[in-house]
Simulated assay, not measured.
Amino acid sequence: MKRTGTIITLVLIAVFFSIGIWYIYTKDKQDPVVYTTEQATNRTIVKKTVATGSIVPKEEVLIKPNISGIIKEVYVEAGDNIKAGDLIAQIDVVPNVSSLTNAKNNIAGARTTVETARLALANQKSIYDRQKALFDKGVISANDFDNIRNTYNAAEQRLKQEQVNLRSASQNYDIIKTGTTSGLGNAATTQIRSTITGMILDVPVKAGNQVIEANNFNDGTTVATLADVEKMIFEGKVDESEVGKIKEDLPLEITVGAIENKVFDATLDYIAPKGVAENGAIQFEIKGTLAKKDDDTFIRAGLSANASIILEKAEDVLSIKEALVQYDPKTKTPYVEVATGDQEFERRDIEVGVSDGIFVEVKSGITADDNIKVWNQLKAPAGFGGRG
Rank of each mutant, 00 (worst) to 15 (best):
V223I: 13
R167P: 00
V97S: 10
L62R: 11
E115M: 15
Y335N: 10
T255N: 08
I350Q: 02
D80L: 00
T36S: 07
I246H: 05
F217L: 14
A258R: 08
A380G: 13
K363S: 12
T195E: 04
D249N: 12
P329Q: 12
T101V: 07
N165E: 04
I259W: 01
N81P: 09
T52A: 14
R193I: 15
D136A: 08
R111N: 14
E351H: 11
I107G: 09
I176N: 14
A291C: 07
P65F: 06
I82L: 06
T37A: 13
T190M: 02
L119P: 01
E38H: 06
V97D: 11
E285I: 04
F345G: 08
N172D: 14
K330M: 09
A258E: 09
T180R: 13
N172L: 05
R130N: 03
F234T: 12
V243F: 04
I107R: 09
W375G: 10
V15S: 05
T195I: 06
T113P: 03
I8H: 00
I127T: 09
E260M: 08
I200A: 03
G138E: 07
G5W: 00
F217I: 15
R149L: 09
V56P: 03
A301I: 05
V97Y: 07
I192T: 12
F135G: 06
G257V: 01
I71Q: 09
E115S: 15
E235H: 13
P251H: 01
E285V: 07
